[in-house]
Design a binder for these strands. Sequence first.
DNA 1: CGGCTGCTTGATCGCTCTCAAATGGGGTGG
DNA 2: CCACCCCATTTGAGAGCGATCAAGCAGCCG
Lengths: 238, 238
Amino acid sequence: MALLRDEVTEILSTVRLFRDLTRQQLTDVAAAAGLVKKEPGRAFFIQGAEARRLYVVLKGRVKIGRITPEGHQIVVRYAGAGDLFGCVPLYGGTEYPATGEAVTASEALYWNRMTMDRLMGCYPPIALNALELLGQELSDIRSRYQELVTEKVERRVARALLRLINQSSRKVDAGILIDFPLSRQDLAEITGTTLHTVSRILSAWEQRGIVTSGRRKIVITRPRALVSIAEDLSEEDL
Amino acid sequence: MALLRDEVTEILSTVRLFRDLTRQQLTDVAAAAGLVKKEPGRAFFIQGAEARRLYVVLKGRVKIGRITPEGHQIVVRYAGAGDLFGCVPLYGGTEYPATGEAVTASEALYWNRMTMDRLMGCYPPIALNALELLGQELSDIRSRYQELVTEKVERRVARALLRLINQSSRKVDAGILIDFPLSRQDLAEITGTTLHTVSRILSAWEQRGIVTSGRRKIVITRPRALVSIAEDLSEEDL
DNA sequence: CGGCTGCTTGATCGCTCTCAAATGGGGTGG
DNA sequence: CCACCCCATTTGAGAGCGATCAAGCAGCCG
């Protein structure tokens, strides 16, 4: 382990799953953690593999994606610093239903299933926090499910971009930059469409001055226009 | 409360949420429960209302549905005997994100949020079971999300019917009957399409002798044909 | 028996997927 | 440092699934 024990404890104190634990308890949790680093494109775990570990992102960005038997891919979500991923061991599933792959150089702490069982046994707040996190994930995916049924593609892409802005963006001169590499293909897999359609939509937006984009890079220049697309308002901003 | 204490305890012993509790503990849980009955069409709770209670279905069938600001409806799932619904209080949400409505005459036990908090505090297995249930629900909705993106309507309708058969069906002379009233509109809201499309699909299936259907009533006469549609096999059965 | 609610069916339209091919930027290796 | 190659992206053309609009029909309940 490359990190100092105290440092890990400090980080864990900001992680939702471990909220309400005392410093002493956090130290125990930290002591049980392992650390992995992955280069971009490398996977922390692969869909279908035995679900052994629970992860928390320290740095970088991890893409959680699934693939159908027919080969169709979808992106479930992106996890950033402080986010949990691979939570299957928490609720007793046996294999990972998705693949967790580093998009940028990433580091994550992990706990083995048995370790986690012990920790949850000793420290009940962990189970309650997990419940809360899972509940939020559930309501998030339900909203997206509903969007998928009821909304047109352009609107879904707008919403997806806004969500990504919230999760992981940086202000730059031209506007707001999604600060990890994001291809049209990725956006398509997030919104449940094809890269062609996404490309056309972004081109149209670019002409309207709403975004500037390049190879795996997107800058939103007029966020408010994006909001009005997402909310389906007639565009009343400049 | 119309039920005997012991009777309730007996029922609770079959509910997943309360697995691993001793008889003594179950009695305590039972003592804290309340009972509600609803006529068909009546709601246990309404989308947007303050989430006060957690329910377990005793009998009947409860439809969990959402409606978008634009008025588009979707059915999240159906809950039958032993199933949990309105689990929002479990994970700390403040309002119900959906409406829970009785489809047939239904009865449910409920616990108030504070009561549930106490029970989970006293009996840790409840929290762990809840975690497991939420996890399963999560993977279920993820599968359906994926179906929605990757599969054509006919296949989704076939899958939905097969799921409903598993949940709640009865053998009759002609085949397998979905044993609660299910309209085309309902099926459309389950599969994310329109009642027109569902009606066309069912008509086509009826011509091929796969189903027999009437007003809010569906009998599957050749389940294997339905499976082959759901799995997209070329139909090699009679 | 009448009206309501749920179901069927036709016609049309348009969004989005599919298939195809060309373009261009960036990184790598020479 | 330059040239090449690969991968992401763009753009076009066409087809088709399913939504939408619009009637008409038929059980069922009161």
